[in-house]
């Protein structure tokens, strides 16, 4: 059954056309990876899905409800869509625990005690129980991003959008974040913009290759890596594979 439907999305900033008609669907608990050159609109697409940047044209549906409809309660719908940012965007003035619990407290109106308990479970899940009392400025980049993932998970989302979650990390910290993401596979739907080809190859149910604001080609990792139909896809994968390596773990 289709959980997310993205239908013919267009988005421009001034005269610059970023997205030129993007459509795809996602099923429950599916993992899809979006790859493509910089400036192709991958991040913009994610922001169009959760309406941080509403699209100019096109629709987004989540579980049969149209997110792009101005009459929809966007705050209610966003509870169901987690977002993990490239530069983490943890709340600087809150401990790791409260970063995870604040959505439960203020949005879901869950009692403080229960919210802390749930937040602690999520921090444990990402391997950061010991850092619960630390503030973002006291955490490493990899730890920050895992708190970011825990923050998204705590809301029990149907879908988590990952916007280049490892791009701002030192190479030796990327593995921990990717491991956490892999552990979520099949438990929650994930739409991941990344250059980590290892992750794309080993974890994704489908890879979407975007360029120039459109989807050039999409398919299973096996098809895409060994038998891509479009020359442009093969060229990009060849180049990025040489650059980032397509080994396990990226």
């Amino acid at each position: 059954m289709t959980m997310l439907e993205v239908k013919d999305i267009y988005k421009s900033y001034g005269d610059v056309h970023i997205l030129n008609g993007v459509s795809f669907t996602m099923k429950k608990d599916e993992t899809k990876v979006i790859i493509g050159p910089s400036g192709t609109g991958k991040s913009t697409l994610l922001r169009c899905i959760n309406q941080l940047s509403p699209p100019d044209k096109g629709q987004v549906w989540l579980n049969g409800e149209e997110i792009t409809n101005p009459k929809s309660n966007i705050n209610k719908l966003r509870e169901k869509i987690g977002f993990v940012f490239q530069d983490f965007n943890l709340f600087n003035h809150l401990t790791a625990l409260r970063n995870v619990s604040i959505g439960l407290e203020k949005v879901k109106k869950i009692e403080k005690e229960a919210a802390y308990k749930r937040a602690m479970e999520e921090l444990t899940r990402v391997g950061l129980a010991a850092q619960a009392a630390q503030y973002p400025a006291q955490l490493s980049g990899g730890q920050k991003q895992r708190v970011g993932i825990a923050r998204a998970l705590a809301m029990d989302p149907d879908l988590i959008l990952f916007d280049e979650p490892t791009s701002a990390l030192d190479p030796e910290l990327i593995g921990d974040v990717l491991d956490v993401m892999k552990s979520l596979c099949g438990k929650v739907a994930m739409l991941v913009v990344t250059h980590e080809m290892g992750f794309a190859r080993n974890v994704a149910d489908e890879i979407i290759f975007m360029e120039g604001g459109v989807i050039v080609e999409q398919g299973s990792p096996k098809e895409m890596f060994t038998n891509a139909k479009m020359a442009r896809t093969r060229e990009f994968l060849g180049r990025i594979g040489a650059l980032y390596g397509d080994e396990e773990g990226g």
Partner: peptide, 17 residues
């Protein structure tokens, strides 16, 4: 930073929250 507002809105907080 503007990212703080984005993160808050992404959790489902309204603007005032």
């Amino acid at each position: 930073e503007s990212g703080q507002m984005n993160a808050a809105r992404s959790l489902g907080m309204n603007k005032l929250q």
